[in-house]
Amino acid sequence: MARNREVAKRLFAIEYNRSGHEDKATEENAPNYVITPLGDPVNRLYFVGVLMSKVNNGTEESPLYRAEVRDPTGTFYLYVGQYQPQPLSVLPTLEPPTLLGVVGKVRTFTKDDGSFYVSIKPEVLFPVDIPQRDRWIVSTSKFTLERLKALEDAQAMDGPAVGPLMEKGHPRRSAESAVNAMSLYGKQDLMQYREAVKGALGLVIEGGGRPLMEAPPPPKGATPRPPDIKEDVFKLIRECSSEKGALYRDIITRCDQKGIDRIRLEETIQELLDEGTIYEPTIGLIKVI
């Protein structure tokens, strides 16, 4: 029996980026899977987001683009080289910010110290409009909620197993995910994922499904600007830095302690990267220039 084509999983960046495990193929030609915190085994995924930046870290002849695509919950990191012909032909023609659909394969990187990072090897990129983004958010929310609910039930169980979860009305897919997640990640705080789904659905409602051009005008009057955290973040990075630089996850931990919002942290780091005060020698590592 031939293996079915790998499904393109729908999941938000927040779930994908917090993955800490993978299921590496032992057989030849068998697929690799990233196991997300909600237990979903992912080999291929489809997501929609805003292309925030693209940088060619290679040469003109053999380009290697690093691109960031932002969904309502976080950022997907894409690497596009000569083995991704379609994305490589499309990406140079796109100017950020652009709403983009991405179908891609998982890419993982484990550092010597055991820290684990995920990114994306895109297979195809295509332009997307707001209604399609909204459909993606709705269906991705459905799948995420399925997994969440199963995992919430599994957490409340003594020795969670697929059978009893299915009896509770969960589809086999999410029951298996939940059991998977429990054994790999133990008890986790699931509130962040619930909030992420709410935020994403909120975007659909605020955006009202209108095309990008007709986005609602900014509200009149001065909007209170959140206090600038750039200095704080910069200081934090220096504090976390060793000779090689600062680990991204260390920075996140420190910021969590200080109560700095993760999304704002990511934005600030991006800002610092754009300014050139810091750079990212390898994924997951930040270094002050």
Binding site: A2, D134, R135, I205
Partner: peptide, 29 residues
């Protein structure tokens, strides 16, 4: 053995309203 394949007789663009669905899902949450 190559998996499922379809010979569509009809093709339409997806027409569900994401706004309505998002509202329903949010209130259910």
């Amino acid at each position: 053995e190559f998996g499922p394949s379809m010979l569509p007789a009809k093709l339409d663009d997806h027409s569900t309203d994401p706004l309505e669905e998002a509202k329903k899902m949010l209130s259910a949450m």
